[in-house]
Write a protein that binds this DNA or RNA. Structure first.
Lengths: 169, 169
DNA sequence: GAAGATTGAACATTCAATCTTA
DNA sequence: TAAGATTGAATGTTCAATCTTC
């Protein structure tokens, strides 16, 4: 069957969206790098800093950021080596691992967060009107909902209720 | 100075946008993988298939997709090893390299493109109204424009006039 | 010296076992 | 048997030289 190709306006829209994707990711990474943490570091530090002081189970942390076990394990190991967090056993379920943010981790986050929020605000929210923001949220949610459904089509399900990196710590 | 933290609605918006980012990238990659090409493969094949039959200079190809020399060089080498494209010298400038898509590359693209466009349409455009699409384009362009300016702030300039992966070949 | 391109090392991510415990 | 987690190999990306030609 002949595919339904994109017309000119749709191609423009798609290209703009891909540009947004690329620039947003790259810009965010660059800004954070200037504060000494990577995007991945930040992603983990936020939910850990907001969670209970005892730390979070690796399973829950993985769910929070939408990562699989392997990626989380590697990232946690690297961050533990750098002193940003620590791992410990899980009382009650000997299979589990509990991840805890260290003082050094809190400090790194506290140092990075203000610049990050300022960057997000000035690069994303400042150029938009409040109406833009409302519409953008609605649009993003619609597409994400469709994408979530779609994951079940040809592949496995995807829980993923990711945490918001720009939350205030 | 106390940073301007995000309010609740802004946090929701930011989180939705990040979710969109992640799901769109992952979903696209997964869909393409089912057709035997990676997102990176596809990115290069599209401008090469649309460009002159003699091929494109690596410099121009890099500009088209917004990659640096190193990343492009590695990706081109891997794709050449798989027979999707070929490299040759550049007549007129002995420093240059000319990259050409092979028949096998064209075939791989022709095989992947219909499914890709169908995926983009059904996952991105179908859930949106024409008005949504127009607004989304405008919003993305505004933010990208701001992000382009911003790149000059703390870092180097970024030309990047990337190609649109979902174009019809 | 600057531009175009390549290379190898370091780092991140994915994939396929593997291991332990529920 | 399934869930939680780790590991090592394969692949992809970034970073810092390096090399050639303009």
């Amino acid at each position: 069957m002949e595919p339904r190709w994109l017309d000119d306006e749709e191609q423009r829209a798609w290209r703009s969206l891909l540009d947004l994707l690329r620039h947003l990711g790259a810009g965010m990474e660059r800004q954070l790098a200037g504060s000494g943490v990577s995007g991945a570091d930040f992603r983990l530090l936020v939910p850990l800093s907001e969670g209970p002081p005892d730390g979070l189970r690796a399973r829950d942390l993985g769910q929070a950021v939408g990562w699989d076990r392997s990626r989380l394990s590697h990232q946690v190991r690297r961050m533990e080596e750098r002193g940003l967090l620590s791992r410990g056993g899980c009382s009650g379920d000997a299979r589990g691992t509990v991840v805890t943010i260290t003082e050094q981790g809190r400090s790194a986050l506290a140092q990075a967060a203000p610049g990050h929020v300022e960057w997000v605000r000035s690069h994303v929210f400042d150029p938009l009107t409040p109406a833009d923001v409302a519409v953008l949220t609605a649009i993003a949610d619609k597409v994400v909902a469709r994408l979530r459904d779609g994951s079940a089509d040809s592949c496995d399900a995807e829980p993923d209720q990711s945490a918001a990196p720009a939350a205030c710590p």
